[in-house]
Nucleic acid binder design. Structure first.
Length: 482
RNA sequence: GCUCCCAUCGUCUAGAGGCCUAGGACUCCGGCCUUUCACGCCGGCAACGGGGGUUCGAGUCCCCCUGGGAGCGCCA
């Protein structure tokens, strides 16, 4: 019987949750849930210079919004805590000392300036920039003397100078690295904090993580990690490096070229189920033509074996389509509660709940994101009418248009109020009396009322407008164009 | 520059040697439905980067080239 599966998502709290991070979290979540294991959230805040107020809370909020629940984490606890690395400093120190004692790590007193100069020299010579090992040869006495003098220092990993490290990656297969080309990675910084590499390995081991699923950008540092596992005498977890999310120009997905934070998408009116579904399909697919999945279905079908190797462009266009699909899937009540805030934020008066509801139901099929709703509904919030579309003007200047509009105006006098039903009746009468039907009948009405050739279903527009507005707009059009 | 990864329509992808006349989805373009507009449905455009092998047979295996990406921090 193999071990209980345990995966983790280990973000650095430097801002918001990146969509690439969301996908990494999702794959970890899906893998753990699929195997009945545990999913852990661990905060990797070992860089004091990058501390961002409230970032952890934001991360947790975004994860919660996406529906990715974790079994252990800073806010829910667990048997392997604490789950925030800045609260585990003693543990890293202790482990670094073990490495020092066993000879797998060494003190380094080189200054940042010296290292910078070294790097420049190497680059100018066309070499791979890496630490030259100066402090490796320091004697115990020399080291002790410098420590006693209080000279700032770091602790470095002593990578073997020969041989190779072989990585068995679930997604990439066998990858080999020449040890001599792997740098003596800093494990403990001069401020006493561990670097990612040390903290990550120590925590994954102590937290009994069985599968490390993370972005491909980490593949290159796996030999360092494997060397650490070896030095500690630990069994490394299964590795799975998933392909990167790309900008349209195929560079690594970044800000500058569009929205990258989950929060951005949430604010623009993307639904969590759409974003999750979309992102799951970037680099993974079930091998069928299915493309819509609930989180539960993803859990059932997910496997690392079906994850791709190549990077995937984050195609906002397809996300929009998928989000539109999920919006159309919403119940009427869900539509109203989801979209009303977007109308309000855009400046619409939503105090009349019944009217707002009608407006939302009239336009929801035409939008792809929450933020689109105001534009789609704008005709309902204007008290004046102005025709600018070329095609709209053409329709208004057709001969039959005036006949239709004048006739409709007459019929309008016969009713007190307008509803979807009696409007259709009126239109039928207009058709019979004028002999004009189809597009020639309806399009002039649409343009005369909305100023545009495309928009919500007309009967719905009429009912929401009410008789006064309908009458006023059509009279105006007759005056201007007939 | 060095190291590593990757390579099917514009994009996401199916394809684990014959089932491929290369399938699906988004976008775009037609059409149908609708007395209007959407939604929906149907159809169309569009790809195996190049060259060598291996094999009776290669999108599928191997090699080279080309192209793209990532990494090379006292950042994660």
């Amino acid at each position: 019987m193999s071990k209980q599966v345990r995966t983790r998502f280990a973000p650095s709290p430097t801002g918001y949750l990146h969509v690439g991070g969301l996908r990494t979290a999702l794959f970890n979540y899906l893998y753990a849930r699929h195997h009945g294991g545990s999913f852990v959230l661990r905060i990797e805040d070992t860089d004091q210079t990058r501390y961002v107020e409230g970032a952890t809370e934001q991360l947790i909020e975004s994860l919660k919004w996406a529906g990715l629940s974790y079994d252990e984490g800073p806010d829910v606890g667990g048997d392997y805590g604490p789950y925030v690395q800045s609260q585990r400093l003693g543990i890293y120190r202790e482990h670094a000392e073990k490495l020092l004692a066993s000879g797998d790590a060494y003190y380094c007193f080189c200054t940042p300036e010296e290292l910078e100069a070294m790097r420049e020299r190497q680059i100018s010579r066309g070499e791979q920039p890496m630490y030259d090992g100066t402090c490796r040869s320091l004697t115990t006495e020399e080291v002790q003397k410098k420590l006693d003098e209080g000279i700032p220092h770091v602790i470095r990993l002593k990578m073997p100078r020969e041989g190779e490290t072989v990585v068995e990656d679930v997604i990439r297969g066998t990858v080999r690295f020449q040890n001599e080309l792997v740098d003596d990675q800093i494990l403990i910084k001069s401020d006493g904090f561990p670097t990612y590499h040390l903290a990550n390995v120590v925590d994954d081991h102590l937290m009994e993580i069985t599968h490390v699923i993370r972005g491909e950008e980490w593949l290159q540092s796996v030999p360092k990690h494997l060397q650490l596992y070896k030095a500690f005498g630990w069994e490394p977890p299964v590795m799975a490096h998933i392909p990167l999310l790309l900008n349209p120009d195929r560079s690594k997905l970044s800000k500058r070229q569009g929205d990258v934070s989950v929060e951005d998408y949430r604010e623009k009116g993307y639904l969590p189920q759409a974003l999750v579904n979309f992102v799951a399909l970037l680099g993974w697919n079930p091998g069928t033509d299915e493309e819509f999945f609930t989180l539960e279905e993803l859990v059932q079908q997910f496997s690392l074996e079906r994850v791709h190797k190549a990077g995937a462009v984050f195609d906002i266009n397809k996300l929009n389509w998928m989000n539109g699909h999920y919006i159309r899937q919403l119940s009427e009540d869900e539509l109203v509660s989801f979209l009303t805030p977007f109308l309000e934020k855009a400046g619409a008066d939503v105090s009349d709940a019944e009217k707002t509801r009608k407006i939302i139901l009239a336009v929801y099929k035409k939008i792809e994101r929450g933020i689109d709703v105001y534009d789609a509904a704008s005709i309902f919030y204007k008290e004046t009418l102005e025709v600018v579309e070329k095609e709209a003007v053409e329709i208004l200047t057709q001969e039959t248009t005036c006949t239709v509009l004048r006739n409709f105006l007459q019929k309008l006098d016969t009713v007190d109020t307008l509803s979807m039903d009696n409007f259709k009746e009126l239109m039928k009468t207009v058709q019979q009396e004028t002999g004009i039907k189809g597009p020639a009948l309806w399009k002039p009405m649409r343009v005369a009322l909305t100023g545009m050739v495309s928009g919500p279903e007309l009967p719905a527009v009429i009912e929401i407008f009410g008789k006064e507005k309908v009458s006023r707009f059509i009279r105006q059009m007759v005056e201007e164009y007939c």
